[in-house]
């Protein structure tokens, strides 16, 4: 039983990261119906920018303190948001009125471009975050070991998700985003500047991915230029699992995917872990064709 709960916490920690990245997919999808395959690479860029900032400021040790971490996070948010904004302007806006699949191919091209740009700038080697920024304290609750930094990570992911949910549901801008998601034409007629809303979404989504990148860097230490591909695919799976376009869905999907992976490796097979996760996804979609929390979309006739 102890092992079960240990695996559950392992899964939740991984799932929290998936969820955070999945939010970016889901938001962009919500307004543009576009699968932004470059999203995983924005996550990588966030991780690398965090690395550059931490080492540039010579931040190390607990002297740096939580304030410095927050400062770096804010700067990464700003920079990745800017890249996201530019990405939409350059690679997606010209394709907005064409077939959705054209934009998908453009996204794949952007993904290859970013991945290789990171490799050329930082080199193909792994980069390693300064090791002593994060607290190394490990909590022991009833025989289950949970590093403090894990709890902080899950808490931070949850806080960001709740903030985002509040933002989209309770603010005027959030309402504009939702209106754009439902019907761009109608939103335009209501006086919403659709282009600005889309730009905003393309800043928020990637920024969340960037934050996830810094968190992965801080916690796991190691960043490399291909990491976005692995995490991106997982996060996309999570977003679909929860019902793409749906913010609580991304949270549920991410956490669930993490838990399925952990329990799958624990009780079935590690080598088959990803296959198990995809199998569960397929089964869920067969039963609920639009994901766990996705709404059944009526056919346009």
């Amino acid at each position: 039983m102890e092992e079960f709960f240990q695996q559950l916490t392992n899964g939740l920690a991984v799932g929290g990261i998936y969820a955070l990245i999945a939010l970016g997919y889901t938001m962009v999808y919500g307004v543009l119906k576009l699968i932004n395959f470059a999203h995983g690479d924005l996550f990588t860029i966030g991780a690398y920018l965090g690395f550059t900032l931490f080492t540039a400021f010579g931040l190390s040790g607990m002297v740096a303190g939580p304030g410095a971490v927050v400062l770096v996070l804010l700067m990464v948010v700003g920079l990745v948001a800017l890249i996201g904004f530019l990405l939409e302007r350059v690679a997606y806006r010209p394709l907005r009125s064409s077939s959705r699949l054209s934009a998908v191919v453009s996204a794949l091209g952007a993904s290859i471009f970013f991945q290789n740009a990171v490799m050329l700038i930082y080199g193909a080697k792994f980069q390693v975050y300064p090791n002593d920024i994060r607290p190394s304290y490990v909590l022991s609750i009833m025989g289950i070991d949970v590093p403090l930094v894990r709890i902080m990570m899950i808490a931070a992911s949850l806080a960001l998700m709740l903030a985002l949910y509040w933002f989209t549901q309770r603010t005027r801008i959030g309402a504009a985003i939702r209106a754009t998601a439902i019907d761009q034409g109608a939103a335009k007629l209501m006086g919403i500047d659709v282009n600005r809303v889309i730009s905003l979404v393309f800043m928020i989504g990637p920024a969340l991915g960037g934050v996830a990148g810094v968190m992965v860097g801080l916690y796991y230490g190691q960043v490399d230029f291909t990491m976005g591909w692995v995490y991106g695919l997982k996060a996309f799976t999570a977003a679909i699992l929860g019902g793409i376009g749906n913010i609580p869905g991304a949270m549920v999907g991410g956490l669930l995917l993490g838990v399925i992976e952990a329990l799958g490796s624990a009780y079935i097979s590690i080598a088959w872990k990803d296959a198990i996760a995809f199998l569960v996804l397929i089964l869920i979609l067969i039963i609920r064709p639009t994901g766990l929390l996705g709404e059944r979309v009526a056919d346009k006739i």
Binding site: P94, L95, S102, L120
Partner: peptide, 22 residues
Amino acid sequence: ASARMLAFGLAMVVMMIFRPQG
């Protein structure tokens, strides 16, 4: 050499933008 995939990715985006319908 090392930059060839960079050029390739960029080419994909550019081709899509100039011929969105393929």
